[in-house]
Amino acid sequence: MTTVSLERVGSSELQQERERLLRQSGISYEELRRRHESYNLTVEQRNIADQIEEVDFLLQE
């Protein structure tokens, strides 16, 4: 049996995580989006872009 763990995270924590991810990418959000759309990212940057999309989705709710 698999145990599922849920964690409540506030918008300030999500925003901090988003900022941390952007710093980790080494490029601006606009550049990250542009490269993401043209498939011109490193594997690490692609993973970061995907994580930022997930954070942005949660911030919209």
Rank of each mutant, 00 (worst) to 15 (best):
M1H: 10
M1D: 11
M1P: 14
T3I: 13
V4K: 06
V4A: 07
V4S: 04
V4M: 04
S5H: 09
S5E: 12
R8P: 05
V9W: 03
V9E: 05
G10I: 04
G10M: 04
S12P: 07
E13H: 09
L14P: 02
L14M: 09
Q16Y: 11
E17F: 06
E19C: 07
R20V: 10
R20N: 14
L21Y: 07
R23P: 07
R23D: 14
R23I: 13
Q24I: 03
Q24K: 14
S25R: 00
I27C: 01
S28Q: 05
E30P: 10
L32C: 04
R33T: 01
R33P: 00
R34Q: 07
R35A: 11
R35G: 10
H36W: 10
H36S: 13
E37W: 05
S38Q: 11
Y39A: 14
N40D: 15
T42R: 03
T42D: 08
T42S: 15
V43C: 05
E44K: 12
R46N: 03
R46W: 01
R46Y: 02
R46F: 02
N47L: 15
N47T: 13
I48R: 00
I48W: 01
A49S: 11
A49P: 04
A49K: 00
D50H: 06
D50S: 08
Q51E: 15
I52A: 01
I52N: 00
I52D: 00
I52T: 06
E53A: 12
V55Q: 00
D56K: 12
F57Q: 09
L58A: 09
L59K: 02
L59H: 03
Q60G: 12
Q60V: 12
Q60N: 13
